[in-house]
Each structure stands twice: as structure tokens, then as C-alpha cells.
Nucleic acid binder design. Sequence first.
DNA 1: ATTATATAGGTAAACGTTTACTCGGTTAAT
DNA 2: ATTAACCGAGTAAACGTTTACCTATATAAT
Lengths: 327, 327
Amino acid sequence: MTIKKIAKLANVSSATVSKVINGKDKYISEATRKRVLEIVEREGYVPNAVAKSLKVKRTKTLGIVIPDVMNLFFSELARGVEDAAEKMGYSIILCNSDNKVSKEEKYIQILQEKMVDGIILAASESSVSKYFNKRGTPMVLLDRDLSVDDQVGKITVDNESGIYEATCFLINKGCRDIGYISSEISSKISFQRLSGYKKALLDRGFQVSESMIYLNNYTIETGYYGMLELLKNNIRVDGVCCGNDMIAIGAIKALNEKGINIPTDVKIIGFDDIYITQYTEPPITTMAQPIYKMGEEAVKMILSIIEGKETELAKVFDTKLIERGTT
Amino acid sequence: MTIKKIAKLANVSSATVSKVINGKDKYISEATRKRVLEIVEREGYVPNAVAKSLKVKRTKTLGIVIPDVMNLFFSELARGVEDAAEKMGYSIILCNSDNKVSKEEKYIQILQEKMVDGIILAASESSVSKYFNKRGTPMVLLDRDLSVDDQVGKITVDNESGIYEATCFLINKGCRDIGYISSEISSKISFQRLSGYKKALLDRGFQVSESMIYLNNYTIETGYYGMLELLKNNIRVDGVCCGNDMIAIGAIKALNEKGINIPTDVKIIGFDDIYITQYTEPPITTMAQPIYKMGEEAVKMILSIIEGKETELAKVFDTKLIERGTT
DNA sequence: ATTATATAGGTAAACGTTTACTCGGTTAAT
DNA sequence: ATTAACCGAGTAAACGTTTACCTATATAAT
């Protein structure tokens, strides 16, 4: 069923059908309007959005590329994006980059070919600055900052001060030998977080010891092996600041296995506040990012760019301490 | 940049450009092929997939509608789907139904308008059988079975025998008072699971007590409050079979709070084997579904339907016991 | 010498919409 | 009575591809 066939059945032109379907029926009589609508209903007509998109040069579709939906942080981000997009009449194409620049680039190309109206990118850690935005598709960087020369929006969180506060919190709780487990500093956020940890230590009169720092990935495994490593290399460690909550989960597992009590013997603080942290044993104290909200903001920002509105291209959120059982 | 402009620059027809871009260059001289390709590269030409789709009536896009990506079960399903789709050159549009038929229907309509080549649906629990598949878009039901009259593919797991085995396992481990916490039986899977639990009890000479059964949702909260309820209503309970892993997580939290030891005092078994189960404290014993694989199979099946191949329209996987710390 | 086949490429319609523009007719204003 | 404004609807081009079909030349086969 096409608009033309509907038109024939209703004895009107395809223009008329188009108008009534799209509610541009100011100059359509109530009689024809009803008749057309009835036939549309009766015939089970489904509008062809791709034909429409070709004409109006707009797909009402957004692309989102994230490292991995199975990661709770990104699934919440994705959910925030999807919900906000849906409210505004947009669909989203989901792409998992696995933190690989090659996949990321490939996806961005495909999204541009599919003529998405905008791309929301949680860049892989080793992402380079330059994107061939050949089509000039509007883009906003989410969570992961990138020094990019194109005009792109940015939604971030203050990582350095977040980890700074987290570390200070551990110190205030009485920790004296505080370790740090996180990802390699191949990305800006990783650098900023490590920097926050070191700064806090120094500001409070502690020393930074490389044996107290374990860097690998933002994964549970890193937390697990990192904790083991810290325990092996140091006579004592009574607190550890984790680069994110996944790492905290892994660290807790390692401590549990070693029979080390949390929080009595060692205190743990995470970062992100993914929703599972409230259900672990013990529940994890963490520096919360407004994850879902950031997803929402990303679509607000990109829609604003798409609509050509005057837009503030950078929005940085604050983190917030959520104290639970691991401190 | 369009194919026509490229054609002009290369002094060939748009047909020729199209042919070289799509590799249908059997009858194109090496010279023109190179020239066209160079100009394409130089001009940063990006093919317009929506124009192509309109012509070839195929979008290389699949729709997936699931209750919620933030749920680890569905995010793994989604990941399996996305990976398999990507390998076959397909993109996916992600839709969260929140378990609501209204959203589900709305999304299916939109997906059809966007002319996706197929729809993979993890139906909401109260989904009704009939879908207005006006366009006749190929469809496969994933995880959630539905008695549907249209010709749709189905990927499922043997729920009844899965829970049956889980319950038997608890019995074999010495449990005598086994509770069951799960979702309302508003869906086929919920019915089958409850049925498996009851059957196991009866087959082994136990009685089914309604006070030992708590039904609500497939959520952590249900597990938490359900466990509390079971404890309140029964003199003793030494084992509980959970309708899924989220419920198990909630139940464990409740037990931990009550200072009841797992697995000594009460044993817990979950269902699904979402990846977080290995990292909880204690790690959760569960009946595993091949979640990721089921996602992959769903796209294999739908592509096979799309390509008009002779296809077995039902695939049911077995569950597998994974013994960990809660039993 | 004729015919067949392979090579290289062009023409133009079609995919299903939207929309600027046109065209009568009716009503209201001058 | 003329003009202006409003109604209701139709015409046809355009969006960017693909592809069936056509043309023309060169080579090979009979």
C-alpha cells in the first residue's frame, strides 16, 4: 500500500492524502479527510519512512555508539538516551565499539550513510581526535571527552575532582595506605582520575607510591587482579580508590576470597554508581555520576544542535558521594 | 556529494559510478574504475543508504524490542543480536518496551515504517497474541514465547524442565522446605517455570504450599521482599528457587541482612546465568540459558527468513546447571 | 564474410514521499 | 461591480539511488 494507491481509492490526489496523513489538513474538507483516513485504516496502510526521509532529508533517527551495552554503565547511558529520544519522536541505532577505534570508525561511517540526524558517541579510550565527519552529521561526545577540532557537543563529569573527593573521603575515614586501581591512562578521563587520586594524596601530606597503583581496564577482572597485586606488593593497604564500580566489584571479590573484612580492614570506594552497587555485599560506597540524566542531556543537546538552535556545547556534571557499606 | 556529481566530475554516467561503488564492475575498465574511486575518495563521498533502501526495498537494519536494556539479561541478549547482526552487515534499532504492550505496539509500528528488514521481539509479559504485522515484516520471538497465529520464528529455552531440574537440585542438596520466588504468571514462561517447580516438588513427594510461593516481578526488589515474606510466613525455609537471577540477588540481600547464612542455612538457585552472578557474594548457583547465543541465533533465524530460505521456525535451547556458592 | 560473444558504458524509469505552485470557485471587502 | 482573500484540491518535480535495457565497438568463431 502506498500513498498513491490510497489516493486512487479515495479519488483524490496523492498530495491530498499526504496532507491529511501529516495533519496539514487546513485546506482539506472534513469529508475528504474522513474518507481518506478511513481508507488508510481499512487498507492497513503503513507510511514509508524511508521515502519520506529521502525527501525531507531527515530520518528521525539517532546513532549511539558505546563500548559495550553489557556494561552496566553504558546500558544505563543508552537507556537514558533511548528514553529521551523516544519522547522526542526519535529512534536510536545502537552500536557497540568494544573500545576499538576501528569498529568505532566503521560505525560512524555506517551511521552517516544511514543518514542519522545525529550521533552520540561514548568514544573508545584510545580514540583519536579527528573524525571524518564527511556529512557534517551533528555529534555529541558523551562521558568520554576528546580533543576534537570539529564543532561537537560534550557531556562530561568532573572526573578529577570526583576522584579527588573520593580519595579525601577515604583519608577522612582514617585510611592511611590508599591504593588506586583503574584503567590505563590512554584516555582523558583515565588521566584525570589518576590525577585526582595523586593530588588528593599529595594535598593531604601522603606519598604517592607506584606499588599502590594498578592500571589496566575498567573491568571486574582488573579490580580482582589489581587488588591481589596491591595486597602482594604492599605490607599494608587499608583503603582503595577504584576508577569505576566494576573495578570495585572485582576488588571486593578478591578481598572476600582472602577473608579480609570490608570495611573494617580495608575500605573501598567506587565511581559511577551503576545500579548494581546497591545490591552487592556489602553495598558499594561510590562517587555517583548522573548516568541516566547524562544520556538524556546528550539527546537534548544533539536535538538542539540539529534544530540549529544556539547551543552551549559543553555541559559538565558534578559527581556526588553515595556512602554505603564498603567504607 | 551525490552519485550524480561524482559522475559529472568523472565524465561518466551515474550508472557507472553506482556500478563501481557496488563492485559490479565486471564491465568497467580499470581506468574508469580507478578514476571514479579516486574522485569518490577525494570528494569524501558518502553513499546515501536511504536512497538506496528506497530503491532496493531493503534497509540492512533490524529492529529489536526488549523490555529494558538496563536489565542484564536483555543487555546480553541485545549484545548477542548486535554482534551477529554486525557480522552480517546489519545495524539494529533498539527499543525498550518497559514490558508495556502499548510501547511495544508503537515501536513495532515505527520499525515497520522505517522498513526494517526484520524484527526481533522479546515480548512484554502481557503481550497478546495478535500483532498487526501490516507490512508482513519477518519477525522472531526471542526468549518470550507467544501463541501467535502469524508465521514467526521462535527462540526459546525449556523453562519448565529448567526450573524442574533446579528444584530437584535443591532437593538433592538436602533442602526440605523449598520456596519459590518469581514473576506473576502473566506470561507463558512464568507459567512454565512455576509449573516446573510444582512438578518437581510433587514428583519427589513434597507438598506445594502457597505460603512458600511469592510472585511479583523479575526484579531484585521482588527477590528482596519475596524472601522477607517467605521468612515471615514460614517456620522454616532452607532453599529457594528463584525465577531468575535478579530475584536471586534480591533474595541474597535479604538473607544477608537477616544474618542468615548462605548456603548453610538456606540455599539459593537462580535462573539465566547473567554474567554478574559469578561476582556476587556468594556467587550464585543458577540454571544457565545460553543468552548471548540465543541472541545470535535470533538473527541467524531472521536472516534466513528474510532471504526466503527454508527455515525451521522454532529453536529451543536447553538450560544447564552452573553450581556456585549459593548451594 | 557473417554471426556471436564479450567488453564498456549510457538512458531513463522507478522506489514512495513531500511541497511549491497552480487553478478554480466562493465569500468578503471596497 | 470589481478586487481581494480564502478554500479545497491537484500537478509535477525532486530527493539519490539502482537496474533493466540499449548502443557500440572489438574480438572470436563459423
